[in-house]
Structure formats: structure tokens, C-alpha cells
């Protein structure tokens, strides 16, 4: 009798214990995790901090003394970039071709992704695979042929050349990401809309596009990002008029090689576009990199 009374609270506590399990796990786990995450984030942020730190110093201070923070805070490096056309035009050029590329990629990828997600047609699997191989293609293989192709059609050193070249990996990327999002939309929606007398274009624009708005946003973000971070092709295809910021930076290193402050400031400015929108896509970063699967 005493045994059963002693057991009863324990048995009764079992379900309670279970419901408490999540807070209990939380209470227990953060101890170690906080340390791990803090160390990891410090590892990630330290090099970036160092770049920002240097961008706010004068060259004399960078080379003359070693300090963990700028003693003599200056914005001169940023001022130089934002007032000197040979610097800021690099950003303008990059932005132009990146935006062009994003628009082109999305425009062609949207219908294609819809086709892949809804219909089966002759050769669809091969085509889908072939697109993937282009996402994976090493830009180094294409650098020289691109140079010759775009030179021969007179597009060398234009923004559209870089935008088209980046379509090599961004169109497949956009198709895969969008297809990943579209397959999550029930097919019944399409069928109901067609029964209601919607034509395909009208259905696509009025009903379907709003449903996958987040997918379009993510695809646009990734096209933007991959075009923005790419250097090899954009450098090979441009010389003066469309020279991207990345190339401007490398050339300054090799030519003068000494203006560390300006180089650091230019680097910081290239991080800004990503840092600005990162908060909005934070939950989709993994999905985007994994081509819409995850």
C-alpha cells in the first residue's frame, strides 16, 4: 500500500515530466551551446571586424602602429571611394549588371520552373539535369570561350555581356529554387483557376505569382548574390566601361598595393548589400543554397 502511494506521484509525474522536457532541455543545453556559439561567432566576425577597423584608420596608423581599434578615427577612406569616379563607378557597374542578370534570370526561370513543377514532357528530366550541370560548371572553363564569344559579337566590356555570362549559373539556380517552392503549391489551385475560366497568363500573374512571392524573393536574392560575388567572369569580360568593383579592387592591389585603408573600405562597402537584406531571407538561406530542396 505504501509502495503504490509512493509510486503514484512518480507515475503521475511522467506526463508532466514530458511536457516539461522542452524547457528542461533548453535550461540544460544553452550552457554549453552559448559557449560554442559565442566562440564560433567570434571566429566568424573577427576577420570582418578587422576589415572594418582598418577601413576607419589612416594609412599611417595602419602601417605605423598596431591597435585593436582605430585611435584616430577617419572616414577619409570612404570619402575617397565615394567621390572618385574610378572607384564608385565600379559599384555602379556591378549593380547594373547584377540587376540586369537578376531580371533576366527570373523572367526566363519563372515559366520554366512552372513547367518542371507541373508537367511531365519529353526530355524533362534530362533538361533538368543539364541545367544543374551548368550551375556546377566551373567558371574557369568558360572564361576564355566567353571572352571570345562576346568579343566576336561586339559585346565585350558591356554590362549585358556580364549579365548574360552570369546567366550560365544563375538561370539554373533560379529554375531549381523556384521549382522547389512551386512544388509546395497544391495543384488543385491551378485546376480550380482553369475551371473558373482563367487563361494561363492571367492565372500565372494574378493567382500563382502571389502564392510563390517568397520563392521569387529568395530566387532574386540568390541571383543577385551569386552575380555580385563572382569575379573571374566579370573581370575577364570587362576592361574599362563595365569594370566591376571586384576587378577595381584587385587592380589597385597589384598596382599601388599600399593603400590598405581604401582597399579595406572598398571591401566593407561590398558587404553592405548582402548585410542589408540578410535579415529578410534569414530563414531561406539554407533552402536557397540547397537549390530549393531542404
Amino acid at each position: 500500500m505504501t509502495d503504490s502511494t509512493a509510486q503514484a506521484p512518480g507515475a503521475a509525474a511522467l506526463p508532466g515530466d514530458l511536457t516539461e522536457s522542452t524547457p528542461a532541455r533548453r535550461r540544460f543545453r544553452p550552457k554549453g551551446s552559448v559557449v560554442v556559439m559565442t566562440l564560433y561567432l567570434i571566429f566568424l566576425l573577427l576577420p570582418i571586424y578587422w576589415l572594418i577597423n582598418m577601413s576607419l584608420k589612416t594609412n599611417a596608423e595602419i602601417l605605423g602602429s598596431f591597435s585593436l581599434y582605430p585611435r584616430d578615427l577617419t572616414l577619409a577612406n570612404y570619402a575617397k571611394i565615394l567621390t572618385d569616379p574610378s572607384w564608385y563607378m565600379g559599384y555602379v557597374n556591378s549593380l547594373i549588371y547584377v540587376v540586369m542578370n537578376t531580371v533576366i534570370s527570373l523572367a526566363v526561370a519563372l515559366p520554366a520552373a512552372y513547367a518542371f513543377s507541373r508537367y511531365s514532357f519529353m526530355g524533362d528530366k534530362h533538361l533538368f539535369f543539364w541545367l544543374l550541370t551548368n550551375r556546377m560548371a566551373p567558371p574557369a572553363v568558360f572564361a576564355l570561350p566567353f571572352f571570345q564569344l562576346y568579343s566576336s559579337v561586339g559585346l565585350f566590356d558591356t554590362h549585358i555581356a556580364v549579365a548574360l555570362a552570369h546567366c550560365l549559373f544563375n538561370v539554373p539556380l533560379a529554375v531549381w529554387i523556384l521549382e522547389g517552392f512551386m512544388r509546395g503549391v497544391p495543384k488543385e489551385i491551378d485546376e480550380t483557376a482553369y475551371l473558373d475560366g482563367y487563361s494561363f497568363p492571367r492565372f500565372f500573374i494574378r493567382i500563382f505569382t502571389p502564392l510563390i512571392a517568397s520563392g521569387i524573393g529568395v530566387a532574386a536574392f540568390f541571383c543577385f548574390m551569386f552575380s555580385w560575388v563572382e569575379l573571374l567572369l566579370s573581370r575577364t569580360l570587362t576592361s574599362v566601361d563595365a569594370k566591376p568593383i571586384a576587378a577595381t579592387m584587385t587592380r589597385t592591389v597589384s598596382a599601388s598595393g599600399l593603400d590598405w585603408g581604401v582597399l579595406a573600405a572598398a571591401g566593407v562597402l561590398t558587404i553592405v548589400p548582402g548585410a542589408l537584406v540578410i535579415y529578410f531571407v534569414r530563414n531561406y538561406i539554407a533552402k536557397g543554397f540547397a537549390l530549393g530542396r531542404v
Partner: peptide
């Protein structure tokens, strides 16, 4: 999530530049 994604979005040549600077013995 936001802080961890940051390195992923840095242009690749800037990643190089960051480490080039970070690893220099003088600066």
C-alpha cells in the same frame, strides 16, 4: 542565423582580401 550567413554573402575576392590582410604579420 543572420551573423552566420554574413560570410556566405561576401564577394569572394573580398573574402580573399580579408584573409590576406588578416594574416599579414605587420598589419
Amino acid at each position: 542565423l543572420v551573423l552566420m550567413s554574413l560570410p556566405l554573402l561576401i564577394p569572394w575576392n573580398v573574402v580573399g582580401t580579408i584573409w590576406q590582410i588578416f594574416g599579414r604579420v605587420d598589419i
